[in-house]
Design a protein around this nucleic acid. Structure first.
Lengths: 204, 204
DNA sequence: TGTACATCAGTGAACGCGCGTTCACTGATGTAC
DNA sequence: TGTACATCAGTGAACGCGCGTTCACTGATGTAC
């Protein structure tokens, strides 16, 4: 597999190595040297592509936000076939992303990297969030007017529940003993929530 | 402040130093030596009290679970004055704990320390979780029978939303721009959820 | 009350280690002619 | 097509550093008599 002196695509190879390391040991649980070793390269070589560890993690997060936004967008499907169905699909996509791209997810939400230091990231995060907010906005137009909570609050609730399910019930840790799958938990939770908004009939 | 050769209560002093360091730089963001320095003691002294960094963090988490369970228990107040009010108080207590004891919270829920390696911790976590589950259990007896979700699912939903609100909207990070306080977000979110369960009248 | 001694919490020196970072270099690749 | 040269990605040696961990020690505290 060794191609000799020149690697060919070291930058992306490092990103992928970082992804595995993050998924395995958390966003702060690995060093630059480890990432270099994982792709059979001198630690010094990393500096041709990244200014340091933070830059590497930021790039992982950046790619994560890209995939994430695309997935959410795709799941939302422009609000088709119904605003409600599209909204629910978006929630499922959130969880599917977290499950399929754990390294990206952790880099995005658990790495603690500062949005001030990486303004481009802040922008991309905002864009991803906008998809969910748009879905909430549209859905809330089906609600008994005057009793609507602001769409941004609505979407914050859903985001919070989704993130909570991921953190508590999809990783090994604390609620590990739950007899429900994360998918079931989120689906039922969102269902009850939407019923509370009058968006699902009591018997649905 | 230096008392000379003997510190007096180094063990607890280390725990408190760790708390500050965790709150500041995350559960993996500090070293044993830093903790030792923070209390003006040789790194070697730490080994008189803890086998290593993990043991120190585990002790922090242990004390956290203690406080947490007590707070939740107190807030629940044996289901008084009503099952509903007690339940909501419990939710508020969750958030209050996360705000007041960030270091403990992070050690408990974000340190990634294995429950297998610390079975005593698993037990304490279980005990804390039981308070919320009991509150959910009691409350669910007020629900239209036959349409009750299992209390453990119910409480998992609430736990997830609470945790999500803490992670996303109480720390600086991603949803930072939300115009709502975490407290408002959680209270409204739980309110809508409970309405979805038929536990609040639509006008409440 | 005073002295001798046991206990044990904290010291400080030492070690090997891996990390981040720099630097002059080397050798593979691509391009101009 | 072939040769000379520029480019630049990756090397490897070197550095200073702080960490985790050990060890024989020291000196403060508590207790027996």
């Amino acid at each position: 597999m060794k191609q000799g002196y020149h690697h060919g695509n070291l930058r992306q190879a490092l990103v992928e190595a970082a992804l595995e390391l993050i998924a395995e040991k958390g966003p702060t649980g690995f060093t630059l040297s480890e990432a270099a070793k994982a792709v059979d390269v001198t630690p010094a070589a990393v500096y041709r592509h990244f200014a340091g560890r933070d830059q590497l993690i930021a790039e992982v997060a950046r790619q994560g936000y890209d995939i994430f936004a695309a997935l959410m967008e795709f799941a939302y499907a422009d609000g088709q076939p119904t605003a409600l169905a599209a909204f629910e699909a978006t929630g499922r996509a959130y969880l599917a992303f977290a499950r399929k791209y754990p390294g990206h997810y952790m880099a995005m939400f658990e790495s603690g990297l500062s949005f001030n230091a990486h303004p481009d990231l802040a922008l991309m995060a905002q864009k991803a969030r906008a998809v969910l907010e748009r879905a909430a906005e549209r859905l809330s137009q089906h609600m008994p007017a005057g009793r609507r909570p602001p769409a941004s609050m609505f979407s914050a609730h859903i985001w919070a529940m989704s993130h909570g399910v991921v953190e508590l019930f999809m990783r090994g840790n604390p609620g590990a003993k739950s007899p429900f799958t994360p998918e079931d938990l989120l689906e039922s939770g969102i269902g009850i929530y939407l019923r509370g908004l009058g968006l699902l009939t009591p018997d649905a």
